[in-house]
Design a binder for these strands. Structure first.
Length: 267
DNA sequence: CTGAGATCCTGGGGGC
DNA sequence: TGCCCCCAGGATCTCA
């Protein structure tokens, strides 16, 4: 499932291919793909792609009109530029370009959403601070954690506080920082906060360099798999020996999500 | 504010 | 081998 590094990779690949393209119309074959809060999607007709970026886990297609088309891929969404006259497998919606070709949104599970936004997309989407931005420093991180009793992993996954971190990278960062996922956020020591912030940024940056992690069936806009899945140290390794101390990795459920950690290394 | 639980979906894995 | 059942998973909404 695409998280920050995967979405960043997709956005960069897409930017190179569709920037400057003019949209003729939008075709929607599964109506619920369009978020109920979206501006009328057909008003995209006549607009031009000015660039492609990322807001949290959303692919943000910036338009010449100043608006933003935000796309959340959820678990199985994919964005594919194609000329195919036939609909692609699980194609739910597409931006048809003037001339030829289209940007197809394919999504087997139908959880992904498109939403056209006027104004600031971060505010409309209620996405918190970007973990790779300069503003995300020790002070900002400490303020987010202060006095909160929520387990630290749940807080890392809360998109309204920190935008872009998903299950895989939350598990990986906590393992690298040797912090137990269930630890109450407000109870981390200053050193643990520093370690965790560093680990989070390092793992995200490294994953972007490797074009993301291909767990399940993730591929980027060019249809390429990522490489970071080979560097995962705890995610998906339940029962396998910890790479530091050989203790079997434990799996628990936290906030309804599979959570992996080493019961010895992580406090 | 906070946490718990339901909801949306379907491919694929597990169980028999 | 074949078939059925049921679960994973992110965001959002309701309810306590």
């Amino acid at each position: 499932m695409p998280e920050l590094p995967e979405v960043e990779t997709i956005a960069r690949g897409l930017s190179a291919v569709i920037t400057g393209r003019r949209i003729a119309r939008v075709d929607v074959s599964w109506q619920r793909t369009i978020d109920a809060r979206s501006e009328p999607i057909q008003t995209l007709g006549g607009d031009t792609v000015a660039g492609v970026g990322r807001v949290g886990k959303f692919v943000a297609i910036e338009l010449a009109s100043g608006r933003t088309l935000a796309i959340h891929l959820r678990m199985t969404g994919r964005l594919i530029v194609t000329d195919s006259p036939e609909p692609l497998a699980h194609e739910r919606a597409a931006l048809a370009f003037v001339g030829s070709g289209r940007l197809a949104f394919c999504d087997a599970r139908k959880f992904g959403r498109l939403r056209l936004i006027e104004g600031d997309p971060g505010a409309a989407l209620r996405v918190g601070i970007d973990p790779l931005s300069a503003a995300f420093d020790e002070t900002a991180f400490a303020a987010l954690l202060a006095r909160r009793t929520t387990p630290i992993k749940v807080l890392l996954l809360d998109q309204r506080r920190i935008g872009g971190v998903g299950n895989i990278y939350a598990c990986e960062a906590l393992y690298r920082a040797r912090v137990r996922p269930t630890r109450r956020s407000g109870r981390l020591t200053r050193l643990q906060r520093r370690e965790l912030l560093g680990a989070l940024q390092k793992v995200l940056k490294r994953a972007i360099e490797m074009r993301g992690s291909s767990v399940d069936d993730y591929v980027d806009a060019e249809g390429l798999q990522g490489e970071f899945q080979n560097q995962l140290t705890v995610y998906g390794r339940a029962g396998l020996p910890c790479r530091r101390c050989r203790t079997p990795i434990k799996r628990i459920v936290l906030a309804q999500r599979g959570t992996f950690y080493c019961p010895v290394c992580q406090q």
